[in-house]
Structures are given as C-alpha cells and as structure tokens.
Design a protein around this nucleic acid. Structure first.
Lengths: 355, 355
DNA sequence: CTGTTAGCGCATTCAG
DNA sequence: CTGAATGCGCTAACAG
C-alpha cells in the first residue's frame, strides 16, 4: 500500500517526487540534480538535459518551501494596503498580481489598520513568508513608519511605495502626474473653445486634487483666461459625500452670473454630482456645458459618458512589480521616483463651445 | 561581533533567534522547547512557562517555513479569482483578508484566466506554498474544473466556492439569496403604496438577475399587482453598458402609457441609467417615481442616493474564512451550502406613492 | 565536471 | 516528563 506500481496511471500522482527520486532514477547524485535544475554553472549540458527530461517524465515539482528554507528567499511579493474599499486599489492589485505571475512570483496580501495591525506587524508576517519584495500602497503607511520600511529595505527585501516622497536610497516610489493631468484637462477644454472654465474640488486637505488644480490654473492663465475654483470644503472620504456636495454647489453656481461654459470635476464623483445638477436645471451636456472628470472610475456610469483623465492605476501595479524585479536584480541601484502619466479619455461629455 | 550584549537596545534584532538559542539559554534540549511552544501534551507546566518567557525575552519568532517543511501545512489561505475589475471582488478580498488575519492566517492571491493560466496551474502554485485552504470565486472556475477542485479537496486542503452548486461532499459553497432580495425589494415598494412596478434587467443570460426578477414577480402577484419586465437584452458586461441601455429603455418607457410609479433596476447600474432618463424627462425621484437598485455598489453616487438591496459581499468574505476554518478543524464534515441574505438599504430614492 | 559532507529550523518518533 | 536520534527537501561549501 505504500508502494505504487510505476505504471499506475490513476489520477493520483499523490507520491511526491523529489530530487532524490530523480537522482536514483538516473543513478547520479542528488546535488548534481539540484545544480542541473538551478542552471548552476559547472554542470555539463548533457547532464542538464538528462536531468531536465527525467524531471519532466517523473512529474517533478521543486518544493518551494524546502528551497526557501535554504536560500532564505521565497518567490513571493507582498502588497501592504490599508483598505480596498476605495475602489482604486482593486485594479492595482489586479495588475500587480498579473505582472508578478508573469515574472514567476506569487502575491501575498497584507492589510494594515491603525487599530488592529500596525505596519511593523504586517512586515513581520510577510518576512516570515520570506517574501522577496513588498510594495506599500499609499495610505497604508505614514511618516512614523519610515524606520520600519528602511529597516526592511536594508535587510535585503526589495521595497517600493506609491504616492510618497523618496525616503531612502533603496526605496523606489511611484507617483501620479496630477499636475500635468490638470493641465491637459484644461487644455482639452480650451482647445474646444471654452473660455469660462471652473474647477471644482477640495483643495486643502487633498494633495492629489490640489495638484490637479494647479495644473488647471497654469493652463488657463497661460491662455489669458480666468481661473475659478469652487471648493467642496469637505474631506472626500467617505466616497459619495463629494457627489452630493458637488451637486449642491453646482445648483448654487447656476443661480449666479456668469455661468461657466465648462466644468472640471476634481474626480469622477464630483463630475457626477455636477451632471445631476445640470440635468435638473435643464442644461444639456455637452451642448451647453462641457463636463470633465478625473480617475475614470465612474465615468462610464454617466449619461452621457464622461470625458475623464484616467488615472494610470493598472500601469502602477505593473510598474511596481517591474521596480521590484529591477531591485532584486540590482539591490544597490539608486532609488527611482517614477511619475506616471494620466491618459485623456475623450467621451461624450465634452464638445466644442457654441459661438 | 557575533555576540551581542543582552542589553543591546539598538534597533537591530538582526540575528535570528531559533529554538536552539532559547534551548541553550535555558540549558535544556531544543526538542523540549519545540514541545513546550507547541503545547504538546507531556511537558510540565513549569517548563512551558519557562520556555514561553525565555522566548518572549529573546524575541523568538517561530520560523514558519521550517515548520511548514515538517508539517506540510502553512498558515496561508488562497483566493482564486478571475478578475478584480468588476468591483465586487474588492470588498470580498478585503473582508477575507481581515478575517484570515484574525484567525492567524495569511492570504495569497491567485488569478486565473482562460488564456494565460488555468485553474490547475493556479492550484499547483498554491499547493507549492502549502496553503491550508482555498476559496474559488465565482467566475474563476467552470464545470470542467470540477475534477481539479475535488482532487484538491481530497488531498486535505479546505476548499469552498461561491455561487456554484455543491459539487462534492467536502466542498462548501456560498450563495446570495437573490430571489428573496427581489421579493423584499418589491415588497418595500408595495408597502409604500406603489401599484405599477416595473422590473428592468437582463433576464436570460444572467442567472443572478433572473432570480431577482422571480422574487419580484412573486411579490407583485401575491399582491394582485401586474408584473412587468423590461429586458435590457444585453449582456451586462462590460459594466457601464447597462447604464446606457437602461437609460434608453427608460426614455422609451416614458413615451408609452401607462407610466409606472416605481422602477426596480436589476442592479445599481441600471437604476442609475433610469435615473438619468427621469431627470431629463423632468420626472422627480422619489416624489413622482420611486427607484430602487441592487448591489449597493454605486447607489450613493446618485442624487438622490438610491435605495438599494446591498449584496452581502463583505459577509461572504468573512463566511468563506469561517467555512475554511471549520473544515480545517473537522475535515470530514458534510458540505454546507450557505445562502447569504441581502440587506435593504433605504435611502432617498423611494417614498410613499402619491394618491 | 561530479560527488561528499553539512546544515537551514523545526517536529516527530523513540528511549531514558 | 525530558533527551537523543532522525528526517522534511533542498542548497552550499568543499574536496575528489
């Protein structure tokens, strides 16, 4: 019962094939097998071929755990995040996972939360699995966690962050080019002939949005146009709050004079709120007013679908993996701060201004 | 340099503390330490206390990898999913991860995709990490993967699925009670005095939605009211498509007679599309028409915010972990099919019918 | 280029 | 109740 006939073709490979088995099978040493499988220099091509083929035949799969015990590394990348509710993390995780897989790595998720699990504990958990690299998503860490990140990086684990300043010469970071996105958004409307463009958003607490506003401001001023900021005066979390606020402010805006011929919502939520207000006022989008959002998270949920500056979240997941791979290959390389560009997605909410 | 003073308070614990160290520290055997830490019966309470305390003092952390090599198990749970883009997976993953952490388990993510990585490969990857349990999200697997799942379950890994039929007496499964949700949604409107309630959704391809419709149908019929289905006639993917379609159909609906006094959108997207149409028609929600959606994914992005039947996704992640834990404790237990209830979230889009 | 020896850190026999 | 021996499967030094 513990001996299976070799020609047992039942769907039960059950018995685990180890290097030992393939060594015995070929009458060579198990360490030679190890070297052959690992492409260690100093093994004849012939042996390598023999071993590889035997491995194939016997259905050998390397035991990652045992390997990991020796090498101290595991082909696993970690993602540390605070919350997946905000929506924008899902595509990040998705693309990160896909890229990692292509590179032969698995992905392990670790959530942090002020009340229950701190960054240090999260790192502890990941280190126990011998992860090779970790990415810390914006919001998961704050200034006070810097020492922990640095310590981790210096212990030989590849590390990067998103939307944080560079904090160490071995920790790469990824940014989103919000300022330029704001600039391009405004230029799009200006080129369509709009002269009176309003930016609506929260400009004090939210750095992302204030950068978008700065870009907008530069564009209109360069073109001799007035800049107007309508502040939502609220923290944008929880999501949805800003829809209602934007709605209220847009209604209000329509009681005054002059009325804008184009509106930029600092994110899609805000644009959505404005859209509802305009519908109620009987204002047609884009015939009378052009409307534009940011992030492209909810843009296609609108009627008409919104022109939006798409946040390169998918790209950021891929980039995060690439940075980790580069650093694993060259641990001493100088830290990079990569700035990802937004993509302008033109849909039906923006059109040429009427004369 | 390899001997640190015990009162070394520098932030570098660096040197790894193993059971060997704590054994030497206490002048006992390493295997005794092992037993003490594992609460194996047959060790004196005194020794256990001694060991535990020494472990604490020295900052000992058990090496999961080494442990795993011996036991064949790792405190890791896997999630197999097809895509995170649809939005509904994010809260699942989020709550799954949190629950897993509370139970002392980590989470490893594994994506599958027809073109690049099949279910069998995904399972292979996870088994290599010696995961203790796996959950397969709806959409990640199909009938043809059943043998692989069964094999996995029989190999001693805890397994469950979501929105799939029971396929083995050791594989639990989680469902959403769509039919009852449809029933309650309709009852909510009926109790508000609405008599002419339309259900809008895709009823052929999408099983989820047709179950919701069935529930709605039962409720109106029980109350002697007419049931009316407006079919979107389209596959609901890609998301957003249904918003536009629903918008078109609602506009159309408003050209005919009689006009409904309440509309149920088979999901929030559809309700959103209807809302845009009603705004354009100058119809006030909820004063003239009550509107209700499903899923509660985008309900708060509307003005007014939508009453919606919230899909218990967060609960499903937690439930998935609980099922895995139960099965790990009792591998032979009969498979369960759990049906999770929706929660009715009443907001501003539904109100009493005008007489 | 191959085989020998040794050990990663832990857990599970079995004697004492 | 404790200690001594043994091995999980692999890799890394060295010697042959």
């Amino acid at each position: 019962m513990d001996r299976k006939a070799p020609n047992d073709t039942a769907a039960t490979p059950a018995k685990k094939i180890t290097m030992k088995h393939i060594a015995e099978y070929l009458n060579i040493d198990r360490t030679t097998v190890s070297k052959a499988m690992a492409s260690t220099p100093g093994v004849s091509d012939k042996t390598v071929r023999m071993v590889r083929q035997a491995a194939e035949e016997l259905g050998y799969r390397k035991d990652i755990i045992a390997s990991s015990l020796m090498t101290g590394k595991n082909a696993l990348l970690g993602i540390v995040l605070a919350d997946m509710w905000r929506g924008i993390y899902a595509p990040f995780v998705d693309s990160f996972q896909k890229s990692a897989y292509k590179n032969g790595y698995g992905v392990i998720l670790q959530y942090v939360d002020k009340r229950t699990i701190g960054v240090r504990q999260a790192i502890e958990v990941l280190k126990q699995q011998r992860i090779s690299g970790v990415t810390f998503i914006s919001g998961a860490t704050s200034e006070e966690d810097n020492p922990a990140l640095i310590e981790l990086a210096e212990s030989g684990v590849a590390v990067n962050t998103t939307v944080r300043d560079l904090l160490h010469d071995r920790i790469d970071t990824i940014h989103f080019d919000n300022r330029n996105a704001g600039y391009e958004a405004a230029m799009h409307l200006i080129e369509l002939g709009h002269r009176n463009i309003v930016f609506m958003g929260e400009n004090r607490v939210n750095l992302t949005m204030s950068q978008r506003f700065q870009g907008y401001k530069q564009a209109v001023e360069e073109n001799g146009l007035p800049s107007q900021l309508v502040e939502t005066h609220e923290n944008v979390w929880p999501k949805g709050m800003d829809v209602q606020t934007a709605y209220r402010l847009a209604k209000q805006l329509w009681t005054g004079q002059p009325k804008p011929d184009a509106i930029i919502g600092g994110n899609d939520n805000i644009a959505l709120g404005v859209l509802f207000a305009l519908k109620e006022e009987g204002v047609h989008v884009p015939q009378q007013v052009s409307l534009l959002g940011f992030d492209d998270l909810y843009a296609i949920l609108a009627v008409p679908q919104l022109t939006s500056m798409r946040m390169p979240i998918m790209e950021s997941g891929t980039t995060a993996v690439e940075l980790l791979m580069e650093r694993l290959n060259n641990p001493a390389k100088q830290a990079e701060a990569i700035k990802l560009a937004y993509e302008k997605i033109v849909r039906d909410s923006t059109a040429a201004a009427v004369k």
